[in-house]
Design a protein around this nucleic acid. Structure first.
Length: 511
RNA sequence: GGGGCGUUAGCUCAGCGGUAGAGCAGUUGGCUUUUAACCAAUUGGUCGAUGGUUCGAAUCCAUCACGCCCCA
């Protein structure tokens, strides 16, 4: 058997790419390629010696109030660079990472060679420009071109200059084109970055330490979900992409780091939807000497602060729904939420397993024999309640049966000191006071293993080292995970998770 | 996995059984402080793929691929 070297692999890939692009070549691309080759006859068409000294946005804000006459007196000369996105007769518009900026080409004032270079340009080309800032008759801040150089030739044409790129498939597969053409998309991802920055600063200001725990687990744990499986060759061992960092973060609390957080990807081998991507970003955090009530307060405050910092207001509109994070979030137990949102349901129907099973069946929920009262109540909740919870609502008192890592309530061992945060009918966060009784945890793992043996492939494994860690003593702790993608969806009014992921997962395209 | 909708020029879309269209982009010329710049002319297509029905298919039917939405 012959080994393929990286070089051979590259050569092969290049050959395939070349074949493909020749196949795809159309006249628009061919004409641009001809221009590029003509330039290459004269000089290096890909210079990297242009250095700019100004960005579009800085110029716009610096001279926002400066009059035409004053600008003329100032005579500010700038070097700017960006992608050519418009031609309006003698005017060109370039766009850099901050904003668009207009250029003026006075063909009477420029040497013939410069005009040749400019006439050779296509929309999409990257150019560097030197010139003086002025204001046109119509008041637009503009750079009067004294010299202009092509820095990178664009071989492919841009999408519609007015309507942008709307084909969702192309927008997701070729996000770079979406970002060039659609201002709204650029804004979404800039906001995403700012939201995560703001979140990180909030944790740091509260004394949390950022950590990184393994992305590859030998025993997948910390959530109920199907993992992706891979294989470590040297160890000849199955490994799993993590479904949650929870058990490692709590090990760190055992180790004495009393406030930790991690912002990173989780991987779950499940379907795709407007709310699910196989890899998604979570922030998980743990605080010793705190309980789940503290976390609910913490979360409310954090959402308020992020909204204020990033959007400048606590009020958002998500898909037509107004939400004001300044208002206190509702807090409601699972049981009470069912009673409130399912008309005609009486408390007795949630008292015993059989009564609840009958109720669930009447709602069209298929009840498994192995399910207890708690699991059945959650199925009723998922089917009949969750989508009604539009305004921020903490649902509390989750059944112990489905919360194998959460501390039991002091008042009722069948429920845990746990909550989930619902906004817009979706789960945004999940937190609880941590189970730190090693013996109880071992017993709960055994129950999970029994369910796994009974065919539930989302049930948890027994993690002996985690039990050992608990035996060293986990201080009373509370922990929480917040879905960052869903938070960004809310703050950017995005209907699909794909709109807030730069490169969402797609099936491979086929011809 | 099931259902619905979509796939036509580089982009945005119309056409829905009888010669494949528009706007923008492109090309050529004009004009040059414009604002989706403007004026004139002009190029551009295996109508997602494969079968079928028909004298004739972008259009009707079937299967497949990919996408979007809803449901599980």
């Amino acid at each position: 058997m012959t080994q393929t070297t990286p070089d051979q692999a590259n050569a092969q890939a290049n050959a395939e790419t070349t074949v493909l692009s020749v196949h795809e070549e159309n006249k628009l691309i061919a004409a641009r390629r001809d221009k590029l080759h003509a330039i290459q006859q004269k000089r290096n068409a890909f210079p990297n010696d242009f250095r700019r000294d100004a960005h579009a946005q800085d110029l716009h804000s610096e001279y926002a109030e400066t009059s035409r006459e004053d600008l003329e007196k100032i005579g500010r000369k700038v070097k700017v660079a960006g992608r050519l996105i418009r031609e309006r007769g003698p005017f060109l518009v370039i766009q850099d990472s901050t904003e668009a900026l207009q250029l003026y080409v006075n063909h009477k004032a420029l040497p013939a060679e410069m005009m040749e270079e400019i006439k050779f340009l296509d929309l999409g080309d990257i150019v560097g420009v030197h010139g003086e800032v002025f204001r046109t008759g119509k008041g637009e801040l503009t750079v009067n071109v004294e010299s202009l150089r092509l820095l990178t030739k664009a071989l492919r044409p841009l999408p519609d200059k007015w309507k942008g790129l709307s084909d969702t498939e192309v927008r997701y597969r070729q996000r770079y084109v979406d970002l060039i053409a659609n201002e709204a998309s650029r804004r979404t991802f800039m906001l995403r970055s700012q939201i995560i920055n703001s979140m990180r600063q909030y944790f740091q200001a509260q004394g949390f330490m950022e950590v990184e725990t393994p992305m590859m687990h030998v025993i997948p744990g910390g959530a109920s979900a199907k993992p992706f499986v891979t294989h470590h060759n040297a160890l000849d061992q199955a490994m799993y992409l993590r479904i949650a960092p929870e058990l490692y973060l709590k090990r760190l609390v055992v180790g004495g780091f009393e406030k930790v957080f991690e912002i990173n990807r989780n991987f779950r081998n499940e379907g795709l939807s407007t709310r699910h991507n196989p890899e998604f970003t979570m922030v998980e955090f743990y605080q010793a000497y705190a309980d789940y009530h503290d976390l609910m307060d913490f979360t409310e405050n954090m959402f308020r602060q992020i909204a204020t910092e990033v959007l400048g207001t606590t009020k958002i509109v998500y898909q037509g729904l107004e939400i004001d994070f300044a208002q206190p979030f509702t807090r409601l137990s699972v049981r009470d939420s069912i009673l409130r949102h399912c008309e005609g349901v009486k408390p007795e129907q949630l008292q015993t397993r059989d009564a609840a099973a009958e109720l669930a069946a009447s709602f069209g929920v298929k009840v498994e024999k192995s399910w207890g009262l708690g699991r059945i109540m959650m199925e009723i909740f998922d089917a009949k309640v969750e989508h009604h919870l539009l305004q921020p609502t903490f649902i509390t008192e989750y059944p112990t049966e489905i919360s194998p890592l959460a501390r039991r309530s002091d008042n009722n061992p069948d429920v845990t000191d746990r909550f989930e945060l619902m906004i817009g009918g979706r789960e945004l966060a999940n937190g609880f006071s941590e189970l730190n009784d090693a013996e109880d945890q071992a017993a709960r793992f055994h129950e999970q293993v029994a369910q796994k043996d009974a065919g539930d492939d989302e049930a948890m494994h027994f993690d002996a080292d985690y039990i050992t860690a608990l035996e060293y003593g986990l201080p009373p702790t509370a922990g929480e995970g917040i879905g960052v993608d869903r938070l960004v969806m809310l703050f950017t009014d995005a209907p699909s998770i794909k709109d807030v992921l730069l490169f969402p997962h797609m099936r491979p395209a086929r011809d």
